[in-house]
Simulated scan of single mutants.
Amino acid sequence: MRRPDGPLISAEHLQRARNSAAPPVLLDVSWSLGSESQRAAYDREHLPGAAWVEFEGALSGLPGEQGRHPMPEVAAFTAALRAAGVRNDSHVVVYDRENSLSAARLWWLLKHAGHEAVQVLDGGMRRWLALGLPTNHDPVIPTPGDFVATPPHRQVLSAEDAADYADRHVLLDARPAPRFHGRQETIDPIAGHIPGAVSAPALNNLQEDGRFLPADDLAVHLTRVGVRPGAPVGVYCGSGVQAMHTALAIEAAQVGAEPAVYVGSWSHWITDPERPIAT
């Protein structure tokens, strides 16, 4: 299958693709930190033909020493994607209901697993509804796919790697600025950031309607926080979700090298009291 043009697909383009001879596999991966599963919301309304993928378990391992949302087990990830109907030759489009954070997580994990034909619906379900495009509540029972994960195809940073990026390259912290500065830590037990990291909140990459900034504006914004064409760039956040969202933004803007992600992020960094903390 031909590799899609860029990591994002507009709602208008997706609507046309749905009616083509080879429609994409649609996946709803809606999720919100600290909230119950959004499966019930999916059952009430989803894009026509979209299969459900549960964030917890499929897109994240168990919380622990590796952080709040470590990499999922390959077997669990593979089983979830096969159950959702993903084949090795599938063009996959993923979406969620809020800011594309969980959709970007699945986008990055599929890329890491070697599946290049994957895009995120720009603006997610919010944009889809704003355009008056169709939804339904019909049960979706996909034909099981033959997806095979073959990681690693994306660079994953260890804590030591992240510190090295902060020292020698660029390491972006994708959390909201108050958490980066240690003024308002609402999730993790220790506040602050990795010394040398640069604050680059993931949601600053979005427009008010939930879509990403236009590519040129996104490139200017990311350049201001230190991303340079072709130069190595690493990204982390609280637990690897907003980091993958920022990785998607960097690729959409076509600036910097392919981003490396510290998946354990701050929730892993603070498990070792010997690691330094800046505020």
Rank of each mutant, 00 (worst) to 15 (best):
V140S: 01
L213P: 00
A219S: 13
N99A: 15
G238P: 02
D28R: 03
E116I: 13
R228G: 12
R105N: 08
Q242D: 11
V53K: 00
L248W: 05
G234F: 02
A253V: 01
A17R: 03
I277R: 07
W128G: 02
A50W: 06
V235Q: 08
R39H: 13
P7Y: 05
A177H: 07
D122H: 06
D209W: 09
W107Y: 05
V25W: 03
A177G: 12
G67N: 11
A253E: 00
H91C: 14
V92F: 04
Q254R: 14
I141V: 15
V255A: 01
L203M: 12
P178I: 11
D216R: 09
S102H: 05
R87E: 14
F147S: 07
L213M: 01
R2K: 11
L129Y: 09
L171H: 01
E116W: 12
P63S: 05
Q38R: 12
I194G: 02
P4T: 10
H181S: 07
W108I: 00
A252K: 04
W107F: 03
G124A: 13
S100C: 14
Q66T: 15
V29L: 05
L218C: 06
L222F: 08
A231L: 04
A104L: 01
I250F: 03
V29N: 03
W128V: 05
W52S: 00
V92A: 03
H169E: 05
D217N: 03
